[in-house]
Design a protein around this nucleic acid. Structure first.
Lengths: 184, 184
DNA sequence: TGCTACGTTCAAAACGAATTGAACGCTGAA
DNA sequence: TTCAGCGTTCAATTCGTTTTGAACGTAGCA
């Protein structure tokens, strides 16, 4: 790797030298990029994954400053990302006495972290949809009692709704199972 | 949320009159909104869910024109949404002889539809991340053979990487199980 | 007390994804 | 053949989300 060595900068090209091995520093840089890509495509945001990967592959606990320098992100982004990851149990804060900075180290209970993130993000979103359908279900049963005989259209809607509601119940069961397995 | 207001469709507030029933038309409109919300929060896009819901609750097969009018979306959006839903098996095209329009009716195999959508969207995204990690794994084992003794840092990275790769394998298994269940 | 180094906040900017709609090609009818 | 009506495309635009960075509050220290 007769490449530039200095600060972990200039990792844009990602060109691999097939004949030679890759330094672990380069490897880590690539994984950080990959983590950013992954977290972004999961709707969590790019920096979140990058921050976690950076800390995960750092022997020493990392400060906000280390993150802004190491990842080239702003102090604001670092602050927010770190807090989110802390809430999900991905990072834990380390107090170093005599040092006013906050330091973070990673926790490697991936399952729990992801479960927390999923519940936090997807779960909240699903709840809203669920609630909306729940309202509809109430309307449905209420109108069912009032009108013994429905128009053809009403009956059609009724039947279609039933189909959705049934599927929703089934989905929730599967989803819960998924979460449980992830947690283990 | 702030959406384009068409002709006095005053269904924005979603306030329910507790004492009276709700017309099935209103109910359907609300479900269409909910479907849009759901599909959007799943990263599929708002119109996709709206289109499917609209067709699902229509007795007659629906044309692109019906969709643009009924949902207040552009012809382009309708065309693209319909095609995507067709690919996922959510809609099927109906030929009406003597009519040059394409008509669509919904299929109600929710599980299959969602499975196709998930595989198409999430799967593709995961593949990229997987591939990146796969590359890394290769590098890892390659460098492992060359250097019998590693620096402390290299060994650290190595160990951390192993943790991720293990988790990845486990995740894939769970994920596959999830897909299978959804399909049933 | 004033000073410095830190983390947090949030309005604004940058960014990217969704949506539009005019232009286009195609097809069937006349 | 031309024409009208249809679906498709994609550059431009709109819209929502993410990121920035200056301003701010706070805590430790002399």
């Amino acid at each position: 790797m007769g490449r530039k060595r200095k600060n972990g900068e200039a990792n844009e090209t990602m060109v691999l030298d097939e004949t030679e091995g890759v330094s672990s520093e380069e490897l880590v840089q690539r994984i950080i990029q990959a983590a950013g890509h992954t977290s972004q495509s999961l709707g969590i945001g790019r920096v979140t994954g990058q921050i976690y990967a950076h800390v995960y592959f750092s022997i020493e606990p990392q400060s906000l400053d280390d993150l802004t320098k190491g990842l080239g992100i702003s102090k604001g982004s670092a602050s927010m990302g770190v807090r989110q990851l802390e809430q999900w149990g991905g990072l834990e804060k380390i107090w170093v006495k005599g040092d006013r900075k906050d330091y973070y180290r990673s926790r490697d209970t991936f399952g729990k972290i992801i479960k927390n993130a999923i519940v936090d993000l997807i779960g909240k979103r699903m709840e809203i949809s669920s609630a909306l359908l729940g309202d509809v279900e109430k309307e449905l049963s209420a109108s069912g009692k009032k009108n013994a005989d429905l128009t053809e259209e009403q009956e059609f809607v009724r039947q279609k709704l039933r189909g959705i509601l049934d599927f929703q119940k089934k989905s929730e069961t599967i989803w819960d199972g998924f979460i449980v397995k992830m947690l283990k």
